[in-house]
Design a protein around this nucleic acid. Structure first.
Lengths: 188, 188
DNA sequence: ATCAAAGCGGACCGATGGTCCGGATCTCGG
DNA sequence: CCGAGATCCGGACCATCGGTCCGCTTTGAT
């Protein structure tokens, strides 16, 4: 009585992997779910049954990629986890996010383009936002809205901006720009 | 030998007005260019001939809406124009942008969703970015990348974020949040 | 081996962005 | 006022895509 049949699990992985490949070689939005299905060797219906719609597919992929980061942020004792000084936690988190975004530009773009109707409902985004808000409450001068600032910081990882910066100077450049900006903001 | 035939000009205005109306009553992306054409009382071909594609239509509309702001920013002697102290120019510009965005949420959303492939090529965006970069060079501590910071500030006007904030607290709330955030950033 | 439940897949649908060209409309010289 | 030619119009047409549906297959527990 396992939750998922073996063929279902196999197909879900195949679809996710096919999506990654297409994201890597074509841009975001430049391929249809038909192509995903074909590449995964399954029918189109399967893709939709597993992920609901295009949006769900990218959400699932992003969640998978973000899992390690989520874990690092939540586990006490680590450099990013609870207990570490907030400033370090925040800057470290942004570093990790820069990495993640820089290495998954197409995914970030596709995700936000497709979740656009309410990005604020996406579980991954919500988790990140909550995390940042919590840290910013302690770090920003009173009078600055920490929730808004958290959105503002997450907006740094807008797919197009990331692509723009990464094309010019690679992931390193992105990380440095983000960090420099955040440090300026925290200098207040 | 006027540049544009009378009927052409009439139709272009009709299309722009129809687009505004549909943006106001439906959300962004929720209507087709067929509907725009129907509402404007023209054929679909006319819409495409005048604006090239969906993207061009929203760019044109945004440019029209942004014209007054562009003028204010460029004319010397005014509060936002050259000659005024940079800090005041920047904060004032952001105030105006908050107003513009708050009153045209749907347009902002539609515009960015559709120009996503290269927002950085849109003339209006480029103009705003250049303006901000110029001011930030004088206002930010050295070591902070002003171009990146300008993108970051413009990202505050992401359609979804604007909608989110405006729904919660109206345009006033947006203006206050943006201003508070910017002041914190400049406190460095 | 059996059988019910779960899953599969590709034909199908409606809508949409964008194209195209025959015909209507405007402009302007005469 | 008129006519000719350039300009523009409009809606039929096309390809594509997201999403649905249902008859058939696979799975796995008994």
């Amino acid at each position: 009585m396992s939750g998922e049949r073996a063929d279902a699990a196999r197909n879900r992985l195949a679809v996710l992997r096919a999506t990654e490949e297409l994201l890597a070689q074509s841009g975001p939005e430049l391929f249809s779910l038909d192509q995903v299905a074909a590449r995964a060797g399954v029918g189109k219906g399967t893709v939709f049954r597993r992920f609901g719609n295009r949006s769900g597919l990218f959400q699932a992929l992003l969640a998978e990629r973000a899992a390690r980061l989520a874990e690092a942020v939540a586990s006490p004792g680590t450099e990013l986890g609870p207990g570490a000084p907030p400033r370090r936690r925040l800057l470290g988190f942004l570093d990790e996010l820069s990495d993640l975004a820089g290495r998954n530009v197409a995914l970030f773009t596709a995700h936000e383009r497709v979740c656009a109707q309410d990005r604020y409902a996406d579980p991954t985004y919500v988790r990140w936002h909550r995390h940042l808000t919590g840290l910013l409450i302690e770090l920003l001068p009173p009078g600055t809205d920490p929730e808004f600032a958290a959105h503002a910081l997450l907006a740094l990882f807008d797919g197009d901006l990331v692509r723009h910066v990464v094309e010019a100077g690679g992931v390193d450049r992105l990380r440095r720009s983000v960090r420099g900006y955040a440090e300026t903001l925290l200098r207040a």
